[in-house]
């Protein structure tokens, strides 16, 4: 655990230095931390609060306000199903259910082996190609229930 913490500290320090210890860049720094660990570890936030001289509660307020940040560990791959109006009427809820069945988790959860996280999003802005599923930043257009296993297998290797 101590080794893990040491690594944490260095990385956090590095990210904060890159942003010049600027309090106003808190969100950018949090995004940087999330990019490294795939979530916001408690230890990292405590270190950040000391480095930036921001009260810890303020960092937590920001981190819990935005859906993009997570305080619990995320899986290796993150599947995001668009549940916006356009995708919704084209069957996004059924696609989400298929993901839940295939991965054996509920929405906003992570599989036990830490491989997959399933998330929903209100709208991605690309309604023309809906229903949309985003996996690790790749957009999968015109998804259907039948395409779900294909999408999952692509990342399972």
């Amino acid at each position: 655990m101590s080794v893990h913490q040491l690594i944490n500290l260095e990385k956090v320090q590095e990210i904060v230095e890159r942003h010049g210890y600027n309090k106003n860049k808190l969100i950018a720094i949090l995004q940087g931390i999330q990019a490294v660990y795939h979530y916001l570890p408690a230890e990292a936030l405590k270190t950040l609060s000391k480095l930036l001289k921001i009260p810890l509660i303020d960092i937590i307020s920001v981190a819990t306000f935005y859906r993009a940040f997570s305080l619990t560990p995320k899986g290796q791959h993150v599947a995001t199903v668009c549940m916006g109006t356009a995708c919704h009427v084209r069957g996004a809820p059924k696609i989400l259910e298929e993901f839940e069945r295939q991965l054996n988790i509920r929405r906003e959860e992570t599989t036990e082996d830490g491989q997959w996280s399933l998330e929903t999003v209100a709208c991605l802005g690309c309604c023309a190609i809906g229903p949309v599923v985003v996996v690790d930043g790749d957009y999968h257009a015109h998804t259907s229930i039948r395409k779900v296993p294909t999408i999952l297998n692509k990342y399972r290797k």
Binding site: A42, L45, P55, L56, I57, D58, I60, S61, T64, F65, L71
Partner: peptide
């Protein structure tokens, strides 16, 4: 003190300490 603050948003908004643990502050 700055020990408590708002967390989450919308209907899940609540007032609590960081990580819902006893705050050091």
């Amino acid at each position: 003190g700055k020990a408590i603050g708002f967390q989450n948003r919308g209907y899940q908004r609540k007032i609590s300490t960081p990580f819902d643990l006893r705050s050091e502050e």
